[in-house]
């Protein structure tokens, strides 16, 4: 893994930075470049406060000295949980609604079964967006399987709860969906069981074997690969391909591609949205 350019950052010395780079890579596969001290400070400061530690150097010393699993997991989760929101990259959901899902519905009319995987589900917005979209398309009576997985057990628990802050439902979610599928509980918004029960969430590391998963019609793995090194990206894409039906689709983030990583995928454009079709 790259250990270059370790900075002499405020709050963290180069040795501690290198330790955290190595530690996060080993535990999650995520690569921290040499200029991410701001990210370390932003993500790990709450842990410093909670543990009454004076600096990131102290946290590193504690990590090296302790066998305390909850602390180790807390650090990895703090570094690997990423922002998401409902209907993120709306063009992809438009393409799903207008083109891709109607094709799949036609194809599976006999069995009325569809399977999806949100491979880095974070707090659940992606999988629940899909669930609401499927309900809107009148597929409530179909056998729909949606799996959501994330490295972070905390994120998985939040996703299962389906409870969101006002700022989270304010972003990207059409008001018509909010009033139809959520109930206001105090200052929060609770997703209705009708949607929640459509998604099953599990903790999972994308670097592990995916042989027991699938087959899926569509796999969402958006804005995740960017955090991995090239070898990990290739391995994950190969595994993801193995979970898809022939002709199934992989959805990546807007800045991600399979090009030069897994060229067996066929890139198909639906308007501005790219979908990667499995052979």
């Amino acid at each position: 893994m790259p250990l270059s350019n370790a900075p002499a950052a405020v709050g963290i010395n180069p040795e501690s930075y290198r330790f955290l780079q190595d530690y996060v890579y080993r535990e999650s596969g995520i690569v921290l470049d040499g200029d991410k001290q701001y990210l370390l400070e932003a993500r790990l400061t709450p842990i410093l406060r909670q543990r009454q530690l004076a600096s990131l150097n102290d946290l590193c010393a504690l990590l090296q000295a302790t066998a305390e699993a909850p602390l180790k997991r807390q650090v990895v989760e703090a570094m690997t949980t990423h922002e998401t929101f409902f209907f993120r990259e709306a063009a992809q959901f438009d393409a799903l609604r207008t083109t891709v899902l109607p094709e799949l519905i036609q194809l599976h009319q006999d069995t009325q079964k569809l399977a999806f995987w949100s491979a880095a589900s974070s707090f659940g917005q992606e999988a629940y967006t899909l669930a609401m979209l499927l309900l809107e398309m009148g597929l409530g009576g179909w056998k729909i399987q949606i799996l959501g997985t994330d490295l972070s057990t905390q994120a998985v628990e939040r996703a299962r709860a389906g409870k969101y802050l006002q700022i989270e439902v304010n972003r990207g979610l059409p008001a018509a969906y909010l009033v139809k599928y959520f109930t206001r509980v105090g200052l929060d918004w609770q997703l209705k069981d009708e949607v929640r029960k459509m998604v099953r969430y599990e903790a999972m590391d994308l670097r592990q074997s995916m042989r027991t998963l699938g087959p899926f019609d569509i796999v969402f793995c958006r804005n995740v690969l960017i955090y991995f090194d090239i070898e990990s990206k290739k391995k994950i894409l190969t595994e993801l391909r193995g979970t898809l039906f022939r002709g199934g689709y992989l959805l990546l983030g807007g800045s991600e591609t399979t090009l030069n990583l897994a060229n067996e995928f066929e890139r198909k454009m639906f308007g501005p949205a790219a979908f990667y079709r499995a052979p």
Partner: peptide
Amino acid sequence: FTKEIIADKLRM
């Protein structure tokens, strides 16, 4: 609201 919230709604 935030600027991003307004922008996302307008895109939507």
